[in-house]
Design a protein around this nucleic acid. Structure first.
Lengths: 338, 338
DNA sequence: CTGAAAGCGCTAACAG
DNA sequence: CTGTTAGCGCTTTCAG
């Protein structure tokens, strides 16, 4: 910038103003500055600007995992609005570990980012790290996986309702003993889905609602093993609602291995945006979340919080509904109908 | 930091050194500084540091898309090494648009990042924007989708070989008229796969190698439409190699719609890390890239470039092999054997 | 409309 | 071992 100023025999102050299109600079010099800037292909040092302005034009997205259709679509949604606003997006992965999430958020306290979008890990049972961030006046918005009981904005989907719908769907298609596979009893979102599921079981007076919730934790292998045990056990279910994508994949894989036929012996529904659902064997019934929209809306909300300093905007809850898309995996079977 | 210094009645200089664990500070004061720092929960302003040190501890990852298994796994690989090094990861999406890629890379020139990992868009036919970045001494590593003919490090897979293998696999399983679906004739990686495919056709003296390469561009709907045309045309193929994940999904979807049975009438192979491949209908034969490893290796290479200023390290090419995993979609069929 | 100067928070060279 | 000081590149008063 000094060079630019020298080149044009102007002061750095003037150049700075010209580049930021200040009204107190003549159009003439603005043009000249712009020209020589691009000629010397000069670009503003973002960190110097950040230092002065105390804003980084950067947001953080904290998620448990990217290799999951829901989250990657959500990132697309987030990115689309960040791009429009000229913001940069830092991605952090907690890999479902609380300790990772903690250290990630502590990084976000340092002024590195102007706001945080977060989907909490399944291990998170304590919100100190989140509250600390909020105390530093960093705008935060939860998307999808919230932490309950905080005064923090969130963009979620109608989990309870969908849980309810998933159970009634299975029951009305003939299941007598449906179960719900959860990934964590501390995850609000999972609990809401499970509660809806249990409520439906209670209403229909089917099975024991409490026994119908099964928590699947651990590595992929451990989960596969748990599911195999479940499906070969004596009280084996005839219907499964998987709370997340990867559980359904395990169910399919295991069923294939041990020759359980879907939907004849076992009906399956999953909460997921899995693109390949219609071409699976058999096509998989999904409760499809508006993943892109959730990301987009959460980002828009965050920017509201970043732009206006009215933090009270921030008890906001936006619920975007999911839809149950019925496919073969949950269909009633001919020979079972009678 | 000034406050910290006042609190401890030390100078800012000393505090700074203490925090960065300089050898010229007594362990005693270091401990005190650390303590009060965490008590006041002070964190270093990263942008002030960046400004002084001329390094941002941040890398950029530029990719065409996140909602693709290959790329999300690659991000995992990248993130894993960035985290270990204490680096932050900015994600930029080109959405396969050259114009986006250009503006993204121009952002990277400003010193915002210490290095760039990039997988080019399918539209990219010109490398000015990449060269400009290189001229600014920003370390760059290509991963997966490279731009050919530049002196830039890359981590790729054995595309030619796999293209060759895919064709011979189809042919030896009975295909007389296999085709290769490309997404771009300007994409090195696609061309290598296609070249391998053509070479095999030539060696086996099957069909016209040149006519066997079909470019599928445009939106999802346009691609579906193209594929439908292909599969209902008079010279319809009996084998397809899809160069990327989403093309295979189109093929499956369309085949399902128009009742083409896989593998009896049409055998399919895809270059992809698709997790659901084994549970598709039918299970899909894949050429599975080591996506995580590619991301990880590319990041490691980038950090070599960032840490040593020996830029000549940078003509390096690392090839990590993919494997063909045979599943039902490409199997020879009983009644066709005779 | 343009220039001079102070300072954002931190680091590093140099003195003590 | 600790303090002082200059300056990273930019923005923003305040004067001219």
């Amino acid at each position: 910038m000094k060079e630019l100023a020298k080149e044009l025999s102007l002061s750095v102050g003037t150049v700075s103003k010209a580049l930021s299109d200040s009204h107190e600079i003549s159009d003439d010099t603005k043009k000249k500055v712009a020209e020589t800037a691009s000629r010397l292909n000069y670009t503003l040092n973002p960190y110097a600007s950040s230092l002065r302005n105390k804003k980084s034009k950067t947001i953080a997205v904290v998620l448990p995992e990217v290799a999951d259709n829901f989250f990657s679509l959500a990132i697309n949604g987030i990115q689309s609005v960040a791009e429009k606003k000229g913001y940069h997006v830092l991605i952090y992965l907690s890999h479902e570990k609380f300790s990772n999430e903690k250290s990630i958020l502590s990084e976000c306290c340092s002024g590195r980012v102007d706001g945080v979008l977060i989907s909490v890990s399944s291990e998170t049972t304590d919100a100190q790290h989140i509250l600390k961030l909020q105390q530093q006046n960093v705008p935060i918005v939860f998307f999808d996986r919230e932490f309950e009981g905080l005064h923090i904005a969130k963009v979620i989907t109608n989990d309870f309702e969908c849980g309810y719908a998933s159970a009634t769907h299975l029951i009305s298609n003939g299941c007598k003993n449906p179960v719900f596979l959860s990934i964590s009893s501390s995850l609000g979102i999972c609990n809401h889905r499970a509660s809806g599921f249990k409520a439906a079981l209670k209403d229909k007076k089917i099975a024991d609602p409490e026994k119908a919730i099964i928590e699947c934790r651990g590595t992929k292998e451990e989960v596969d093993w748990q599911i195999k045990n479940l499906l070969t056990g004596k009280t084996k279910p005839d219907g499964i609602v998987a709370s997340v994508e990867r559980l359904a994949m395990s169910v399919y894989l295991v069923s294939q291995q041990i020759n359980i036929s879907i939907p004849a012996e076992l009906k399956v529904i999953v909460f997921s945006t899995l693109e390949t659902a219609p071409i699976l064997n058999p096509p998989l019934t999904t409760i499809t979340q508006p993943a892109f929209e959730i990301g987009k809306t959460a980002a828009e909300l965050l920017f509201k919080g970043i732009e206006k300093k009215k933090y009270n905007l921030f008890d906001e809850i936006i619920t975007l509904p999911s839809v149950l898309i019925e496919r073969t995996s949950s269909q009633p079977c001919q020979f079972k109908k009678k």
